[in-house]
């Protein structure tokens, strides 16, 4: 494995589904997708619902296989479940019968890390996200934001070089969302994994990413790529005041809007300022 290998590489990837067991027609979810994520790079995938963004993450995690084309992780073809990446799913997917610390230790446990070290590493990250005092609470006793923090540190605690995140902040309220975005930037800068980040939120994509890939409607193809050159570390809470933000936002929104417009019949006089 050469050091110059991209962390993740998609090469002419196609993915077709049979949505239901008796569906007559397969659905083409991804069409000719090619892109790379470099080591330490934060890449966001944005695009209309159902455009196959999440499918891309499942492909890197090896939970599903491409119908054609090649998905590589660190220069090696992904085949079967890829335990060398971290995957933060949309639902927090915490085990309800395990306490917070038990959940954070889960990956380390599966990886055979001895108990004292598990405890130490879990506690360290629980501290970083301000959850000390809640280690022995069960998931249903935690708020949505706390559960989300738990599911993020649970994945980051075992230090993979690639982290996949599928709309991790989707269901949260606006304030918690921004706070967690800032915490994520903070956590990411500690170990600098490559991140593939799926989101609908363009502000979030700009605030966090080095690069943003815009997908078209289904079948998802890559419409455009944007480089986000805002200096780091970024002030997430005032990201929209950063010079260069609005131009980028407007360009992204124009792309997305064209895709939404293509999916739905245009309404007479509809106009986005």
């Amino acid at each position: 494995m050469s050091t110059s290998a991209p962390a993740v590489r998609f090469q002419s990837v196609y993915k077709a589904f049979i949505a239901r067991e008796r569906a007559a027609q397969p659905i083409l979810a991804l069409e000719d997708i090619s892109f790379v994520a470099n080591p330490g790079e934060f890449v966001s995938l944005v695009g209309p619902s159902g455009c196959g963004k999440s499918t891309c993450l499942n492909l890197v995690a090896g939970l599903t296989a491409p119908s054609a084309g090649l998905v590589e992780h660190q220069g090696a073809r992904v085949s079967g479940v890829n335990t060398k990446v971290g995957y933060i799913t949309q639902d927090d997917n915490l085990l309800p019968w395990r306490s917070l610390v038990g959940n954070v230790e889960l990956g380390l446990e599966f990886r055979g890390v001895p108990a004292p070290e598990r405890r130490r590493r879990a506690r360290e990250l629980i501290d970083v996200v301000g959850l000390i005092g809640f280690e022995h609470h069960y998931p249903h006793e935690l708020s949505g934001g706390m559960r989300k923090r738990a599911s993020i540190v649970r994945t980051l605690v075992y230090d993979t070089d690639v982290v996949l995140m599928d709309e991790p902040f989707g269901p949260l309220d606006a304030q918690t969302r921004v706070i967690l975005q800032a915490e994520l930037q903070n956590l990411w800068q500690r170990s600098r994994p490559s991140v593939l980040f799926v989101t609908h939120d363009l502000v979030e994509a700009i605030a966090l990413s080095d690069r943003i890939i815009v997908f078209t409607n289904r079948p998802g193809t890559i419409k455009r790529e944007y480089r986000v050159d805002l200096p780091r570390p970024r002030d997430i809470f005032h990201i929209h005041e950063t010079p260069g933000f609005s131009d980028l936002y407007d360009a992204l929104w124009a792309d997305i809007r064209a895709e939404i417009g293509a999916a739905h019949a245009p309404v007479a006089g509809e106009r986005i300022a």
Binding site: L131, G133, G145, R149, D235, F237
Partner: peptide, 19 residues
Amino acid sequence: MGLGNGARVTAVGERIALP
């Protein structure tokens, strides 16, 4: 207003500590 980076962000997280 230099809010938002590094340790500051963690300080915001402390809002969820016990009342």
